[in-house]
Write a protein that binds this DNA or RNA. Structure first.
Lengths: 220, 220
DNA sequence: GTCTATAGAACGATAGAC
DNA sequence: GTCTATCGTTCTATAGAC
C-alpha cells in the first residue's frame, strides 16, 4: 500500500494509487459524518465508516491517523454547513419584512425544521454535543464559533437592521438574538433531544408561535 | 426507590449468601449511576461498575439481567431525585416572596447550579440525553415525566399561586413556567452541554439576570 | 440438604491499530 | 489481513441461610 510513494502521474487518474486522493478523503469524511451522526462516537466502528465510504480501513488510518483524529477533523470541517443553511433562511425570511410576526414565525419554524428535522443535517452535531466532555476545548470552541454562535451573530445583525428600520425595539442585539433562539428554538431542541426523537408538527408550531408572541412582547 | 419490598428487618446482615440483598442492589444502582454518568453508556464497562459497587460482575447480572436493563432501571429509578431537590429550592425561594425579582433570581441561579454544577447530580441525565435515540420511548417518557416535566409542573403551580397573590400576571401557568425555564436555564444548559463543561460564574449570573428581567417584562 | 448469592476465571465476539 | 486488547456474558466452585 504505502500510498505516499506510489505512481506519481499528474493525469486525472481514476484508478487507485494516485499520489493524492482528496476525493477519497472527502468520501471518508462524508461517511464518517454520517456514521458518527447516526451511531455516536463509540458505537461507530471504523469498519462501518470504511464500508460506508467504500474504502479500506487502512486508507482511513493513512488519511486521519486514528479514530479520534478522524472525528475531530470531521467535526471541525462540518461546523459551518448548517450555519450557511440557517443564514440562507434568515436572509430569505428576514431581509424584506412584509408582516413581522408572520415572517419571524416562518423563519423560526424553518430553522427548527432544518436543525431538528428528519434529515441528518445536524446528526453529527448531536454526537458532538453528546461527546462534549471528551472533546478538546479548542475544537469545541471552534465548532461553537463556526456553528451555533455564528448563527446567533447573524441573527443579531438582522435584528439590528430591523431595529434601524423601526420594526423592532432592540438595544442589545446579541441578547435579543439569544432570547429569540431560546423562546423559539430551545424548547423544541430540548423536547426532541436535538432531533433524536420526533416532535409532532402541531407541537412544534404551537411552541414556535408562543415563543414569537413572547419575543414580540419583549421587542415588538 | 424500591418502595414496597424494602428490607424487612433492622438486622445488619453483613454476611454474604443471604436470601435477598437489597443493599447490594442499591450499591450497584448507585455505582451504575455514577459510572454511566461519568463515562456514558458504551464507555462504561460492567467491570468498572462492579468495581465501583464493590461487587462481582455476576451479582450485577443476577440482579439486572444485562447491561442495557441495568441502565434503563437506573435511569428510571433516579429520574425523580433531582426533581425533589429543585422542588425544595422552589419552595425555599418562591413560597414567601419578599422581593419578587431577587427571589426569582436566586431560585433560578440555585437551580442552574444544582443541575449544571460540578456535582454529578445530573451526570446520568446527561447520558440519558446523549442516548435518547437508543432508549425505548416509554422509558424516555417516564424519565421526562418524573424529571424535567415534573419540575416544570411544580414551577407552574408556584406561578399560579403568585398570580393569585397578584405578584405575577399569568394566564397560562404552564407556558409561563416553560418560558421561565427557557429564559433563565436553557441558555446555560446549552452553553455547558448540560453541565459537561464549566461555565464561569459571571456568565451564569449575567444570563440568569437577563432572563429574569425578560420574564418580568412578560409577566411582571 | 437444598437453595441462592457471590467471586473470579474463562469464553467468544468485536473493534482499534498496524 | 492480522494482532491484541477489551468488553459483555457465562461457567464453576464456595459458602452462608432456611
Amino acid at each position: 500500500m504505502t500510498p505516499g510513494t506510489s505512481a506519481t502521474s499528474g493525469a486525472p487518474a481514476p484508478a487507485t494509487g494516485s499520489r493524492r486522493m482528496p476525493e477519497k478523503r472527502q468520501a471518508i469524511a462524508r461517511a464518517a459524518s454520517t456514521v458518527f451522526g447516526r451511531e455516536g462516537y463509540t458505537r461507530a466502528s471504523v469498519d462501518a465508516i470504511a464500508a460506508e465510504a467504500g474504502v479500506s480501513k487502512r486508507t482511513i488510518y493513512n488519511h486521519f491517523g486514528d479514530k479520534e483524529k478522524l472525528f475531530l477533523s470531521v467535526a471541525l470541517e462540518t461546523a459551518g454547513e448548517l450555519t450557511e443553511i440557517i443564514a440562507g433562511l434568515a436572509d430569505r425570511h428576514l431581509h424584506k419584512i412584509v408582516d413581522l410576526e408572520a415572517d419571524l414565525n416562518t423563519f423560526a419554524l424553518d430553522r427548527a425544521r432544518a436543525v431538528l428535522g428528519a434529515g441528518d443535517h445536524y446528526a453529527l452535531g448531536r454526537t458532538i454535543r453528546a461527546e462534549a466532555g471528551n472533546i478538546p476545548t479548542e475544537v469545541l470552541n471552534a465548532w461553537l464559533d463556526a456553528g451555533p454562535l455564528a448563527s446567533q451573530r447573524d441573527l443579531a445583525a438582522h435584528f439590528g437592521r430591523l431595529a434601524d428600520q423601526g420594526l423592532l425595539h432592540v438595544e442589545d442585539t446579541e441578547l435579543a438574538a439569544t432570547q429569540f433562539t431560546l423562546l423559539t428554538f430551545s424548547g423544541a431542541a430540548d423536547a426532541t433531544f436535538y432531533g433524536a426523537i420526533h416532535l409532532p408538527e402541531a407541537e412544534l408550531t404551537a411552541g414556535v408561535t408562543a415563543g414569537i408572541r413572547a419575543f414580540l412582547r419583549l421587542y415588538g
